[in-house]
Simulated scan of single mutants.
Amino acid sequence: MSIGYINGKYIPLDELAIPIDERGHQFGDGIYEVIRVYNRKAFMLDEHLERLITSAKAIKLPIERDASDFRLLINEAVEKSGLSECTIYLQITRGFAPRKHLFPGVPISISMTVKPASLLQQSLRENGVSAIVHEDERWANCYIKSLNLLPNVLARQTAYEKGCYEAILVRDGMVTEGTSSNIFMVKKGKVYTTPLSKRILAGITRLAVRQICEEINIEFVEQSFTVEELFQADEVFLTSTTSEVLPIVEVDGQMVRAGKPGEVTSELYQKLQQMIVR
């Protein structure tokens, strides 16, 4: 069953409520992680927790717990839910305090939900998805997994209204990432993706794909590229915790090659599935 957690208490989701004077609610003053659980095991949990702690340090959020504490909490929540295939949303904010911009001297707030995993339609994996190109209007510190997601929401909504799955974000003429994904292209058997910087999130599935490429001897190239180069790619795909590895076959109405998922993308997806069940 779906369950909620807030500051030491497990609560049914329909009873979970956040006070109005909550920093995440009023300022977006917090961070989060989305973690996929397969067969009761949180996938790449250590990497998620490392990124969580990095984000906390970046916004000066005083977390007293370490990764092992969060690992125990997450495993306990999965056990209590009774779900074997689920998605965890973990959020940490600067706490409950009267609305003032300066940091309050109050305890941080930790909340979490555990819900059944929403599986993608198989047809999306078999046929691929479409995307639009959208100006990257986000702030300068996208490496922080913060709650400030309004530009992402607006870009994703624009994609949806145009019948597309994702918006590929572009800044200064170069592809950065998707609204909730990392973007890749394949050219002459090599996998290309935007280098890590403050402008993109260090995706966990992005890391998994890099590890897979190293294992199967596919060259993984961290190199910036333009939309025009994306159109000329042999394959394009996205990665995220919930989408895993997903082929993109059309961008702004233009087909990527033959408009069908490519062999490299398919192989990376299959290898990711093998990695999940190890």
Rank of each mutant, 00 (worst) to 15 (best):
I6T: 06
L13C: 07
D14E: 14
I20V: 15
G24C: 10
G30A: 11
E33Q: 13
R36Q: 10
R36D: 03
Y38N: 11
I59P: 09
K60Q: 12
D69Q: 06
R71T: 12
E76S: 15
S81C: 05
G82V: 07
C86T: 11
L90R: 07
I92H: 02
G95Y: 10
T113C: 08
S118R: 13
L120E: 06
H134R: 13
N141W: 11
N141M: 15
K145M: 05
S146C: 08
V153K: 08
L154T: 08
T158Y: 13
A159L: 03
E161L: 13
E166K: 06
V170H: 08
M174T: 11
G178T: 01
S180R: 14
F184N: 00
K188A: 10
Y192E: 00
I200R: 07
G203D: 04
I204N: 03
C213H: 06
F220K: 05
Q223R: 14
V227G: 01
E228C: 03
L230P: 00
E235D: 04
S240R: 09
T242L: 12
E250P: 05
Q254E: 15
V256Q: 02
G262W: 03
E267C: 06
E267S: 10
Q270L: 12
K271Q: 09
Q273P: 00
M275C: 00
